[in-house]
Design a binder for these strands. Structure first.
Lengths: 105, 105
DNA sequence: CCAGAATATGTCGGATATGACATAAAATGC
DNA sequence: GCATTTTATGTCATATCCGACATATTCTGG
């Protein structure tokens, strides 16, 4: 995912307007990162909306609580595939998916 | 991606109405597969619209022609991340991404 | 037809993502 | 305040994905 840099800067107190403002991220890479961040936020929203804990969601997607935590914190080791699977497993409707994407796409 | 089954059946002459009609694919898995198929189709469309060969696109995304071919043929070894990267590299606009998704989402 | 371009398929070693576990840190509510 | 639940972080062996290469197949114009 290569959000490592972004995450570190966030942790250091930066507030990024858009994820692509940092050196070393091409437009394409930046677009992908922003897409992921938007979906990651949606995962947490949808999960909570359905009253699920991370452990609950983990079971639904045959994964583990720690991985769900990594998904939601934007860990660099998390793929777009996994994010989308989490979204579906959390019970996101197609409309919710579209809505999440509309913030970035 | 686990489209292997789907692909084999397609090759064998089956015409799937929706990708999830096959046994062994949960709703969640089916949704992901359909999402990927929609985006994969968009990659080819956008690439051709911009007059790019697979080799051209491969260069743009620092990949190889064979991998682009695998993307567009829905090879099971291709991640959603790679599909989206291909889409951006092919020059897809955000609107085109949304449009591609609207067929499934 | 055929030559050249484009696309597809098979394979492989190295790179990255994964679930799982342990454990720490925060949040919750009583 | 404390016990319990929830969430975060670090690590690891394994699974999966990756670019690259070789080669086959299909497409296109002459």
């Amino acid at each position: 995912m290569n959000t490592g840099k972004l995450k570190r800067l966030r942790a250091a107190g930066w507030k990024a307007g858009s994820a692509g403002e940092f050196l070393g991220l091409s437009d394409q890479e930046a677009a992908l990162v922003e897409l992921k961040l938007a979906l990651v936020a949606a995962v947490r929203e949808v999960r909570r909306k359905h009253g699920l804990s991370q452990t609950d969601l983990a079971q639904r997607m045959h994964s583990s609580q720690s991985r769900v935590a990594k998904i939601e914190t934007g860990d660099q080791s998390v793929s777009l595939d996994l994010i989308v699977r989490a979204l579906f497993a959390a019970g996101a409707t197609r409309r919710e998916l579209q809505r999440a994407l509309s913030t970035v796409a």
